[in-house]
């Protein structure tokens, strides 16, 4: 305990300004999340270790010839990203709830959608960093080239969709006692379209399928999903977090 005498009756010099704009509040939340995570590395290390373990287990569990590898790779990758993403989303919102910090955020005089988008961007950054490490490790273990621009685009679009809806549902699940169990139960059914589209589009790139007829429809679905769920989250986040 610091025993220094308190200074009483001080007049604080305040220059109040209007409420921060949307972008400023959003990036304040992103800065806070990144600063806290780069110091503790709890969320990132859990996601990364989990992802590496999953692809290792699949490597040993599946008898993989060259042809089979190409057909199962997209499924293995997206199962890994989805499960690791759920870990990250749960942890990201638990940090807000544990010390009442979510209330601290909600007390700020900002559009609450700015808080949501701040959380989405920081969750997306964590997920993309994990993916950037998992992809080369997977390429090395399975001897398959994953560094194709089209495939990377699918990873980005799929991750955006997954994190967009995941952050919204995590902010609902975190209000409950069973939040660790509840998030995947809520998230996976809603994220089925984005996971199917991501697996199909990724598989298409890996098997060199026809772009216009076999890949493009799935990419279109991913884009539509991302836009729709971003709009829905923008509209409902305020109601989700308020009692």
């Amino acid at each position: 305990m610091n025993d220094r005498p308190l200074t009483i009756n001080q007049t604080l010099s305040i220059v109040r300004r209007p409420s921060p704009n949307f972008l400023k509040a959003t990036f304040a939340v992103v800065w806070k999340d990144l600063a806290a995570e780069f110091r503790s590395r709890e969320l990132f290390s859990a996601m990364l270790v989990f992802s590496l373990l999953v692809i290792l287990i699949f490597n040993f569990a599946l008898e993989l010839d060259i042809k089979t590898r190409q057909s199962v790779t997209s499924g293995v990758l997206w199962v890994t990203f989805a499960f690791a993403g759920t870990l990250g989303l749960n942890r990201s919102m638990s940090v807000e709830k544990d010390r009442g910090c979510l209330d601290g955020l909600l007390l700020a005089p900002v559009d609450r959608a700015a808080i949501y988008f701040g959380k989405v961007i920081s969750n997306l950054v964590f997920m993309l960093i994990v993916e950037a490490i998992v992809l080369p490790v997977y390429s090395f273990l399975y001897n398959i080239n994953l560094f194709q621009p089209g495939l990377l685009l699918v990873v980005l679009l799929g991750s955006i969709g997954y994190v967009t809806v995941g952050t919204l549902l995590a902010s609902m699940a975190v209000q409950t006692r069973t939040r660790d169990v509840l998030l995947p139960i809520l998230l996976f059914p809603v994220a089925v379209p984005v996971l199917i589209a991501s697996v199909k589009a990724s598989g298409g790139f890996l098997t060199s399928a026809d772009f216009a007829s076999e890949i493009m429809p799935w990419i279109n679905l991913l884009i539509v999903y991302d836009v729709i769920f971003t709009a829905i989250a923008f509209m409902v986040f305020d109601y989700v977090v308020e009692e």
Binding site: S13, R16, R17, S19, W31, L105
Partner: peptide, 14 residues
């Protein structure tokens, strides 16, 4: 962080 969320000027002094 909270100063930014409340858009406080001269934040380091505050």
């Amino acid at each position: 962080f909270y100063g930014r969320m409340y858009n406080i000027s001269n934040i380091e002094f505050r």
